[in-house]
Amino acid sequence: MLEFTQQIINGLSLGAIYALIALGYTMVYGIIKLINFAHGDIMMVGAFVGYFSLTLLGTNIFVAMLAAMLTCAVFGVLIEKIAYRPLRNSTRIAALITAIGVSLFLEYMAIFLLGPSQKVFPDSAFPLKAYTLGGLSILNKDVFVFVSAVVLMLILQYIIKWTKTGKAMRAVSLDREAAVLMGISVDKTISITFAIGSALAAAAGVMVGVYYNTVNPLMGIIPGLKAFVAAVLGGIGIIPGAMVGGFVMGLLETMVSGYGNSLYRDAVAFGVLILILLIKPSGIFGEDTGEKV
């Protein structure tokens, strides 16, 4: 039982990170129907901004996180403007290839500028404390990752549900043409979506840095793919779906490693994804839309 509870804690921290990245995926998909494969790499950029903010500028972790989020928000908007906007009216597969191109570009630009080796996140940024609760070990960074993820999700939920921008975002994702007729600036709304999504990814990047101590230029690929799976699991385009999908993914991986064979972890994750797609293609939270003729 003790071990099981420990595994749940492990799964929740991992899931929080996946959920944050998945949110960005899902928001972008919801609004322009683009699988933004570069999203994991934005997380990497965020992690590096956080790293440099901590080491070169000597800021504390919260400032580093804010800096990463701001930088990546700008970055996300720029990427959308330069690479995705010209393709908004062409086929989705062309946009997908562009996203792959952007992803490669970010990865190898980072290797070119910073070298391929990993960089060590300074320990001093987040002094480690362990709390033991009857044999369970909970670290302050577990709490940090979980709480910041939840806070960020709540803020996001607020923005989407209660602000004008959020309304505009929902409107554009529902029906772009109609949104234009209602006087919503589609370009602006899409830019804001990218800014928010990228900022969340950046926050996740800094958390990964804190949590796993290292950052490297290719660190975004695997979490990016996993988060993407998480987004689909929850129902791509649906914000609460991404959160739940992220946590499900984190728990699932932890349980497979903990109670099954860790080597099949990825296979099981993908297998569950396929099952979900086959049973309910729109994901756990998705609504089945009937085919329109």
């Binding site: 071990e3 420990q6 492990n10 949590y211 290292t214 660190m219 695997i222 991986e253 932890t254 109670y259």
Partner: peptide, 13 residues
């Protein structure tokens, strides 16, 4: 596997 960063599940086991 390479690029794994989270080992706690197997370690707990």
């Amino acid at each position: 596997v390479k690029d794994d960063r989270d080992f706690r599940a197997a370690l707990t086991k």
